[in-house]
Computed example of a mutant assay.
Amino acid sequence: MTLLNVVASSSSSPPHPVDDARVQLLRSLLADRDWSQDSILRTRLLQALASLRDPAGASLDEATWLMVADETARYLDFRRLRTLEAKLRGCPQEALRYTRADWEAARHAEAALESHLRHVRFSSYAPEPVPMFRIH
């Protein structure tokens, strides 16, 4: 199930608050001390969470769902890299101080490595042969 699947209540049953994995993930990212957002984004995410908790407002507009989807996708990748970093350092995740800034730096490093590997795959480290130069 994607994050864009809007939960719509049927007209015959009373509306109920959305409480699934998406909401749990949203709660988790808002509570994570290492995952920070700018104040405007945090406010919008808190409003989205409040709307999802409210029985009468369980439906969000498409722009809000896209914002929540983007932020939760970033957060899932952050958790992946934080887990990997903790394993590499041989410490529990709770002992590791890994922030959003660290995640962004790691993402840039991953992108640079991927670009380098792509370049190497289609080229060679050996220099191009120099054409013969003769003086007569």
Results as ranks from 00 to 15, higher is better:
Ala69Val: 01
Arg107Gln: 12
Tyr125Lys: 03
Thr83Cys: 04
Asp70Cys: 10
Glu62Thr: 15
Ala101Gly: 08
Arg79Gln: 14
Leu60Trp: 10
Pro127Asp: 12
Met67Tyr: 02
Ala69Ile: 01
Arg80Met: 02
Pro127Ala: 14
Leu84Ala: 15
Ala86Glu: 08
Ala48Thr: 03
Trp103Ala: 00
Tyr75Pro: 01
Cys91Thr: 15
Arg121Cys: 11
Glu128Thr: 02
Lys87Leu: 12
Leu52Met: 11
Asp34Tyr: 13
Ala101Glu: 09
Asp61Gln: 09
Gln37Trp: 02
Leu60Asp: 02
Arg33Cys: 07
Ser36Arg: 06
Glu71Met: 03
Leu41Tyr: 04
Arg53His: 06
Glu110Cys: 08
Arg118Lys: 14
His108Ser: 12
Pro92Arg: 12
Leu46Ile: 02
Leu60Ala: 06
Arg44Glu: 15
Glu114Cys: 05
Arg97Ile: 05
Gly57Phe: 08
Leu81His: 02
Asp70Pro: 00
Glu110Val: 09
Ala48Gln: 01
Leu45Glu: 01
Ala58Cys: 12
Pro129Gln: 05
Gln47Ile: 06
Thr83Phe: 07
Arg118Ile: 01
Leu88Met: 10
Arg121Ser: 11
Gln93Lys: 06
His116Lys: 10
Arg118Thr: 12
Arg134Ile: 01
Ala50Ile: 01
Thr83Gln: 09
Pro129Ala: 08
Glu128Ala: 13
Val68Asp: 01
Asp54Gln: 11
Ala101Phe: 07
Met67Pro: 01
Glu110Asn: 08
Glu62Ala: 07
Arg97Gln: 12
His116Thr: 10
Asp77Gly: 05
Leu60Tyr: 15
Leu113Asp: 13
Asp38Asn: 15
Ala126Met: 04
Ala50Phe: 03
Arg97Tyr: 03
Met132Lys: 10
Phe122Lys: 08
Ala105Ile: 00
Arg74Cys: 05
Glu128Ile: 04
His116Met: 08
Glu71Gln: 09
Thr72Arg: 06
Ala56Cys: 03
Ala56Ser: 08
Ala31Phe: 06
Ala50Asp: 13
His108Phe: 05
Leu46Asn: 14
Ala50Arg: 09
Ala109Pro: 00
Ala73Ile: 08
Leu30Gln: 00
Asp61Ala: 07
His119Gly: 05
Ala112Ser: 10
Ala111Gly: 00
Asp77Leu: 07
Pro127Val: 13
Arg44Ser: 11
Arg118Met: 07
Leu84Tyr: 11
Gln37Tyr: 08
Pro131Gln: 06
Ser115Gln: 14
Arg134His: 03
Ala73Lys: 06
Glu110Thr: 07
Met132Pro: 03
Leu96Ser: 03
Glu114His: 12
Pro127Glu: 12
Ile40Trp: 10
Leu41Ser: 15
Leu88Tyr: 11
Ala112Glu: 10
Ala69Asp: 11
Gly90Asp: 14
Arg80Gln: 04
Pro55Lys: 05
Ile40Leu: 15
Leu66Ala: 14
Leu66Cys: 11
Phe122Met: 06
Met132Tyr: 04
Arg33Gln: 11
Thr72Val: 13
Arg134Leu: 12
Ala63Arg: 08
Arg97Lys: 14
Ala126Lys: 05
Arg79Asn: 04
